[in-house]
Write a protein that binds this DNA or RNA. Structure first.
Lengths: 133, 133
DNA sequence: GCGTGATTACTCGGATACAAGATGTCCGAGTTTGAGCGG
DNA sequence: CCGCTCAAACTCGGACATCTTGTATCCGAGTAATCACGC
C-alpha cells in the first residue's frame, strides 16, 4: 500500500507543464532532463496521462506533450487516477452475501482522501513552483 | 497502490475476535477455518497484530490469540497500520530543498483518510456481525 | 492419591518458493518539420 | 523560385529484463496443559 514512484513522476511532470509551458509542447527528452529520470520510463507515464485526457501528444519535429484541458481543471486525483487506475483500493476477498461491512468502511475512508485530492488542483502550486532540482 | 489481502484477512480476523470471542483465546486453526484461509499465512498476520499490541498470544494447549486492549479502543487504523506499516503512502523522490509541495498535498490527503479510519472502531460492526461465510 | 515424565496442542520464527507488479531498457514504426537539391 | 526527396526530431507501442513485494508453504523449536504411570 504505497503510491508508486510513477505517480510521483507524473505529478512533478504535470506541475512542470502547468507552471512553465502552458501551451507549448515539451519533448520527453527535455522533461526527463528537468526531472532527472529516464526518457523511456517517463514516456510510459505520459502515455497514460494522454489516455486519461489530461495532456495531448504532438508528433513530429518540435512535438512533445502539451496540456489538453484548462490548467485550473486538473486535480491531483485526475493525475493519480491516470497512473494508478481508478479501481478501489480495497476489495474483500470473502463472499459473505453481497455487502461486506468492513469493505464499506474502508471504501468510505478512501472516498475521504479522494475528495480532498479532487478539490486540490495542481495549478494551485504553480505560483510557488521554483523548478524541480 | 492497493490494500493488501493480508489487511483484509487481519480486519476480518479481528472482527471475529471482537464479535465472537471477547476473552477466550482462539487457535489459528479455528480462525483459519472460519475465514477459509491457510493457517500458516494467517498466523503471520496475527504475529504482526501481536507486535502492534492489539492482541496477545497464549501458548500451549488451549492457547491461541486473544484481544489485548479494550474492544472499544481498536480502530480500523490500528489494524491497518499493524499490517501495512505506519510509513507514509507517498514519498517524493526528487531532492528540491527540504519540502516538496506535492508531497505535502498528498500527505494531507492521506491524513484525511487516516482520520476517518482512526475514528471508526471495529467494535461498531460487531453487532451486525453474522459470521464470515 | 500424588509426583514425574511423556504426549499433545498450541505459538513462534526462519527459510524457502512462487507470482505479480513496479521499474527500467531497447528497438522498430509512424509522423511532421525543415533542409537540400535539381529543374 | 518551386517542388520533390530525404533526413532529423519527435511520439507510440510492444517486447524484454530485473527487482521488489505479496502470498503462501514447510519445518523445527519452544511452551503449557493434560494424560499415563509408577510409587
Amino acid at each position: 500500500m504505497k503510491f508508486s514512484q510513477a505517480t510521483d513522476y507524473a505529478l512533478h511532470a504535470m506541475l512542470y507543464l502547468v507552471s512553465e509551458a502552458p501551451d507549448k509542447p515539451v519533448s520527453v527528452q527535455l522533461l526527463a532532463e528537468k526531472l532527472g529520470v529516464s526518457q523511456t520510463y517517463l514516456s510510459k507515464m505520459l502515455t497514460k496521462l494522454v489516455k486519461a485526457g489530461l495532456i495531448q501528444s504532438v508528433s513530429g519535429v518540435n512535438g512533445g506533450y502539451r496540456l489538453r484541458r484548462n490548467r485550473e481543471d486538473i486535480s491531483f486525483l485526475d493525475i493519480i487516477h491516470a497512473i494508478e487506475g481508478t479501481a478501489s483500493l480495497f476489495e474483500c476477498s470473502f463472499n459473505h452475501g453481497s455487502e461486506c461491512l468492513i469493505q464499506q468502511v474502508v471504501i468510505e475512508a478512501e472516498r475521504q482522501m479522494e475528495q480532498y485530492l479532487q478539490n486540490k488542483k495542481i495549478s494551485e502550486l504553480a505560483g510557488q513552483f521554483k523548478g524541480i532540482g
